[in-house]
Design a protein around this nucleic acid. Structure first.
Length: 482
DNA sequence: CGTATCATCATTAATGATGATACGGTGCTTTAAT
């Protein structure tokens, strides 16, 4: 397709005047019939790529998505844009709705499914009889990050692709170092020599990367100071739900900010409400675990604070990348303590899978969770499915462990080494380092007073919030406890 | 790993000493049949 036509369609279908970095390149390789892996920064508009290609090519666009909420969002957005031929096939549907979609699969242009749903033989068979214009794996890093760990069905996508007659494939993600790229291609059964990989540097120009080594005892005062200095809104990431709750309480008691938590123990309704409140600017700060983030499209997040060290540089960049999507100056702070790292390292090495359990899978069909973690259960399932011998199983377990540890070590080095952080991240992702930034990182500039002032200038004046919940809590305490 | 939290016990009955315990996180799916 000619350049002018590409742009004309963009205007006509999406009402944009020009492509963002990476969009056009990816669309071109796909329309050229090449399988494509596109690694594009968050907020680039990755869904536009497959929507665009869907309109050019005849047939169904089948999108594998990791989260129900993501699917829902995408379908909603498509519907709002006037596209009625979009649906998500998942467990949120009742039987009737599901039957209806299944009966008229050929009506749809965009169909969203989870990897688990594709385990249904019947569904795959039905799909294989349709013309599939494009097979899309959204958030493709999940293959590497979650596959061996806790959603093994991600590992079968290559086989599914085969059963669907190897349709043209597009994998999308924001962060993938070389080994994750290798993982994705291998798992999806894509030939590395014959797949277009479009990659860009996941560093974000308008984020200052701040790493602070700090004693556990000093974290809370440091945090309060940061919250006091930084303009809202912001996210604080924790690696524990309990800690997220506690700090949320601390912030409610010691600041005027509207704060809430987001993690897997909150109900689905609560999560929806909190997410909406945050998007609408009714909440200033979210104390979250890694559960919060994918698909959050809020432009003006000014700061991301990591209360604990993340498990990998990918994870760190995914999470910090949620700041400053409006392009304005933002900041990411990691509060690093040695004891956190030691604790995480220890946890990481723990596996309950011993010889007895590994060999037991021959005899015992039912896999009762004898106190096994989800991650070990997933591993056991893979071992079973692949009919691995004890030695092979052990080697796979070891492989998983080493993968985790090497990622974590890289993250630890990023946090502690005296070197430009942006440069280190670029090296990790095999990317050319960007030219010097005005605000780079805590190695390059340590005095950030004027950066904070700059952020305060661009931020909206803080709304006065009345935190009813907090007030009621106090009233109730005074009434009944005194 | 070291430390935060909690239960217990002791003793000028409300606090403090002591010992025991705990100590990630991510989510899909529930099939009779078309």
């Amino acid at each position: 397709m000619e350049e002018t036509d590409l742009i004309k369609n963009l205007k006509e279908w999406f009402n944009f005047d020009r492509f963002r970095a990476g969009q056009k390149e990816s669309i071109e390789t796909i329309l050229n019939g090449e399988n494509t892996l596109a690694i594009l920064p968050t907020g680039t508009g990755k869904s536009l790529i497959y929507e665009y290609c869907g309109y050019v090519t005849e047939g169904l666009v089948l999108i594998v998505s990791p989260l129900l909420s993501l699917m829902d969002n995408q379908v909603l957005q498509l519907n709002q844009a006037g596209e009625k031929r979009a649906a998500a096939l998942n467990s949120m549907l009742n039987l009737e709705e599901r039957r209806l979609i299944e009966k008229r699969l050929d009506y749809y242009k965009f169909l969203f499914v989870s990897p688990e749903m594709l385990q249904s033989k019947w569904l795959v068979q039905r799909l294989s009889r349709l013309k599939i214009a494009l097979f899309v794996v959204d958030e493709a890093h999940c293959i590497s990050q979650w596959g061996l760990d806790f959603r093994p069905d991600y590992l079968y996508l290559g086989k599914i692709r085969e059963e669907l007659n190897n349709p043209l494939t597009l994998a999308l993600t924001a962060t993938a170092p070389q080994e994750v790229i290798d993982d994705i291609l291998k798992t999806l059964n894509l030939d590395p020599t014959d797949t277009a990989v479009y990659q860009s540097n996941p560093n974000r120009e308008n984020i200052y990367y701040d790493f602070r080594e700090i004693e556990d005892n000093d974290k809370d005062t440091e945090l309060l100071q940061l919250i006091n200095d930084f303009p809202n809104p912001g996210i604080i990431y924790f690696s524990s739900k309990v800690k997220a709750e506690r700090i949320c309480q601390l912030l409610r008691e010691n600041t005027e900010q509207a704060v809430d938590t987001y993690h897997a123990d909150r109900s689905i309704e609560d999560r929806k409400i909190i997410q909406r409140q945050f998007l609408n600017g009714e909440l200033d700060i979210i104390c979250a675990t890694t559960a919060f983030g994918m698909g959050i499209n809020k432009k003006n997040i000014r700061f991301i604070i990591h209360y604990h060290i993340p498990n990998s540089i990918e994870e760190y960049l995914q999470e910090t990348g949620r700041a400053g999507r409006d392009g304005l100056q933002s900041i990411a702070v990691l509060l690093y303590s040695k004891s956190d790292a030691v604790f995480k390292f220890k946890k990481m090495k723990e596996t309950q899978l011993n010889d007895n359990i590994i060999t037991m899978n021959d005899k015992n069909e039912s896999l009762e969770p004898w106190g096994l973690s989800d991650s070990d259960l997933a591993m056991l399932q893979v071992i079973k499915a692949r009919h691995l011998s004890k030695e092979q199983a052990k080697s796979l377990i070891n492989q998983r462990l080493e993968k985790r540890i090497s990622k974590f070590v890289a993250m630890g080095q990023l946090a502690t080494q005296n070197r430009c952080k942006r440069e280190m991240m670029s090296i990790y992702f095999n990317q050319k380092n960007d030219p010097v930034q005005i605000w780079c990182c805590s190695f390059c500039q340590s005095d950030i007073q004027s950066l904070v002032e700059e952020m305060q200038l661009i931020s909206q004046p803080k709304k006065i919030q009345i935190n009813y919940e907090k007030k009621w809590d106090q009233v109730i305490k005074e009434l009944f406890i005194l």
